[in-house]
Design a protein around this nucleic acid. Sequence first.
DNA 1: TGACTATATACGAATATCCGAATATGCCTA
DNA 2: TAGGCATATTCGGATATTCGTATATAGTCA
Lengths: 118, 118
Amino acid sequence: MPMNSKPPLLQEVTELHAGICNGLADPTRILMLYALVDFPRNVKDLTETLELPQPTTSRHLKILRQQGLVIGERKGLYIYYRLADRRIIEALDLLRKILNDRLTYRASLVENYNTEQE
Amino acid sequence: MPMNSKPPLLQEVTELHAGICNGLADPTRILMLYALVDFPRNVKDLTETLELPQPTTSRHLKILRQQGLVIGERKGLYIYYRLADRRIIEALDLLRKILNDRLTYRASLVENYNTEQE
DNA sequence: TGACTATATACGAATATCCGAATATGCCTA
DNA sequence: TAGGCATATTCGGATATTCGTATATAGTCA
């Protein structure tokens, strides 16, 4: 049953939804978010921890900021970034679990194949 | 992007993790995944439900397939796609909740501003 | 087999994204 | 105010993504 006129509100919210996912869709940004789990970090700290050029760090942080995933707060010379919402990590963990299960399953297939061969 | 002194395994897993997120990072694909919540659907069904050109549907399904988010099973002429894991929807719901909370909060700010004005 | 339906892929142009290098901005302290 | 450190932005070219159109592949049935 085709939805003749799709509600424009749903369309817009889905767009934002996708934008959030896009904020998560980069390995550097995922590492950044996990680096912020325990406490806020400033840009220099993140730059050194993740071994990135400083502009790259700032650019990724900008994307995370724009998607509302992190919040930056200036304290003097430094800007400390923290997670905007703990559930971001929950969502990332969920997806990571899916991935782990898949990798485990595939590994077990290889295992079985090997034992059947010998 | 150089993360030379990082464990290569973590880096690879993070890459896959980001790939999954990237699979979710498109409004059409999000609508597709939600369309598959209750039961599998074939491509024609999805094409009509989401009002997309058929090649577009197939292309998005290919991305979802590659990221392990959906599974397709041919039954005669049709290929029925289903969610590969229910937790995908859980993760999407989590992120959607974060979004809703943010929109609600912002709406309340506007509300307060308006009442303070009068 | 041929005709038909469902699904997938190829191609190309427009568009977007990425990243390094350079530079700008903001804040502090002397 | 100048100088220095932290952070952000800009620019440009390489690379990647997107999407429509056209076409290919796969399966069914007469």
